[in-house]
Design a protein around this nucleic acid. Structure first.
Lengths: 106, 106
DNA sequence: TTGACATGTGACCATTTGGTCACCTATCGT
DNA sequence: ACGATAGGTGACCAAATGGTCACATGTCAA
């Protein structure tokens, strides 16, 4: 399994994306705190966090019996750079802004 | 299935990422041309292209009996914007440049 | 030191996914 | 018209994935 395979497989699950959303809002949470936000057992949450950690999307630090989780944005940025050409980036941004405007109006 | 679920599931497979790489290099290819680059049957390739199209990562245009495929960068950009904070973006870019330098040296 | 708490492991099962095939429709060039 | 070419559908099977549980380890606080 390659590095980028791990990243994309990790992002493929909605629960794991939700965990990243939680950490994007506030970093440094424990497993127990994150698990309380999910609709599944602690074991399910732990399995998902492990996948995120192996993909390097989440980095952790131990503090006594607690394990703190932090979001790492680097792999996300690498996805962007893989398929967004520097020269078309401005164009893509303009399209996104147009889309946002249209959705605001509707 | 939500829009972003389709996008991430589509990106989860290495063959589909390779198809995006091919289209990133050169747009407007037919199914037959893309299939010739893969190690699988035409049906496999077609199934993958269909998934990419339903995720809006690839858009198509018919021309006679041929179907031309184009890369659409918008969903990729949306992934980036979901977890990369405008304020930390510069920092992340710096980290990536550092990483690239280290890999060049090794 | 003892009980409660935070985290970790391996086995297990239901569902989803990747890939192939037989067969079909539509369009091109002669 | 007709063979060759480009693309499309539904069924099918092996392998991977999401989730749970019984059980285990390490750490805190009184």
């Amino acid at each position: 399994m390659t590095d980028d395979d791990r990243v994309f497989k990790a992002l493929a699950d909605p629960t794991r994306r939700f965990l990243l959303d939680l950490l994007f809002m506030r970093d440094g949470r424990t497993l127990t705190e994150l698990e309380s936000e999910l609709e599944m057992s602690r074991f399910g949450a732990m399995k998902h966090l492990r996948v995120l950690e192996e993909a390097n999307l989440v980095v952790t630090r131990r503090s006594g019996r607690e394990k703190l989780h932090f979001l790492n944005p680097v792999p996300i940025r690498e996805i962007h750079d893989r398929w967004i050409d520097k020269y078309t980036e401005l164009h893509t941004t303009a399209l996104l802004e147009l889309k946002a405007e249209l959705e605001d109006e509707s």
